[in-house]
């Protein structure tokens, strides 16, 4: 159980986080979601033992982190956005070094390294020099170093940043498997990423938690704002009559056109997405894509801050 009470951190006069309080149950994956500057990294760095807070308490299994910093650091693992790796070492010697540094006995380490390497899927590259590994593998070695000492809490700061789609899927699997052994706190500014890996989401805005719950709870009652962007395939000259022929449209405009690919911004005036798609398809256009006109995180923030939920 991780318990955070009234966590506050100033940088000079700037209040980066403002009285954060939350609890995380054992073996839960919690997503820390927020725009850049929301206070995610500061909170994570405090939980990892790198920074001290201006005020507040963090307890890991009931032990106060600031009263017993050395003991609680044995219970936490941390992966910053850029994995902290000695690139001249092989993955195996690096994990051995980090394991010893975190108090794992030398006798037990070879077996633990093999186990952790399997869990993070770096077993094939254990004897390669880290500097020669791909970014995805370096991230995985970074996760391996964070869990080599079997911590209670693993803190991952933007673990998918800079990865390609295939690597994102692989790292996501690694993160989901981590919760079999420990509690995981993952930060991101991408809602879809957090929602796919986490049991629960903490939404941070200007240093405060503005929402706490699952994606369904956070988006429950959240009104779709009726503005979409569609990518259609069809002749440009037919677009005006088709769009103007849809009765409930509040407005639309062609934002981009490449040959017969047309990008159209549309204000539906209500949630008429299915009807619009049917109308467009019946009119002879192909629908390549339909997206919310604003990023979903931005919409969610607007919604949550407007509604004053906290």
């Amino acid at each position: 159980m991780i318990e955070v009470v009234g966590l506050t951190r100033y940088y000079g006069d700037l209040k980066a986080i403002d009285g954060l309080s939350f609890k995380i149950a054992s073996n839960e994956i919690v997503g820390f979601l927020g725009l850049n500057g929301a206070g995610k990294s500061t909170t994570l760095r405090i939980l990892a033992g790198i920074l001290l807070p201006t005020a507040g308490v963090v307890r890991i299994n009931g032990q106060d982190m600031f009263d017993a910093p050395i003991e609680t650091r044995k219970k936490t693992g941390f992966l910053p956005e850029v994995p902290p790796l000695h690139k001249e070492m092989t993955a195996r010697t690096f994990l051995h070094y980090v394991g010893r540094l975190r108090g794992v006995s030398a006798d037990a380490l070879p077996g633990i390294i093999e186990d952790v390497a399997k869990r993070t899927s770096v077993d094939r590259v254990l004897d390669q020099v880290i500097g020669t590994l791909s970014w995805g593998y370096q991230k995985r070695v970074g996760i391996a170093q964070a869990i080599i000492h079997n911590p209670t809490l693993v803190v991952l700061d933007e673990p998918i940043a800079g990865l390609d789609p295939k690597q994102i899927v692989e790292i996501r699997d690694v993160i989901v498997r981590l919760k079999e052994h420990c509690t995981v706190l993952v930060s991101s500014h991408i809602l879809s990423e957090i929602s796919q890996t986490c049991d629960r989401i903490l939404l941070l805005h200007q240093g405060r938690i503005v929402a706490d719950g699952s994606e369904e709870i956070l988006t429950g009652g959240f009104q779709f704002n009726h503005k979409v962007v569609m990518t259609l395939r069809g002749p440009r000259e037919k677009l005006d009559p088709v769009m103007n022929g849809f009765p409930s449209l509040q407005g639309w405009r062609l934002t981009e056109a490449h040959d017969d690919l047309l990008h159209v911004w549309i204000d539906l005036g209500g949630d008429h997405r299915e009807a619009l798609v049917k109308h467009v398809v019946d009119s002879g256009f192909g629908v390549r894509r339909i997206d919310a006109a604003e990023a979903e995180l931005e919409q969610l923030f607007v919604h949550l801050t407007r509604e004053g939920r906290s």
């Binding site: 936490t76 902290p84 170093q145």
Partner: peptide
């Protein structure tokens, strides 16, 4: 500069 100081910052070492 390489970001590896984090390893020492988070280690149970004084």
């Amino acid at each position: 500069s390489q970001g590896t100081l984090v390893l020492l910052d988070t280690a149970p070492a004084s």
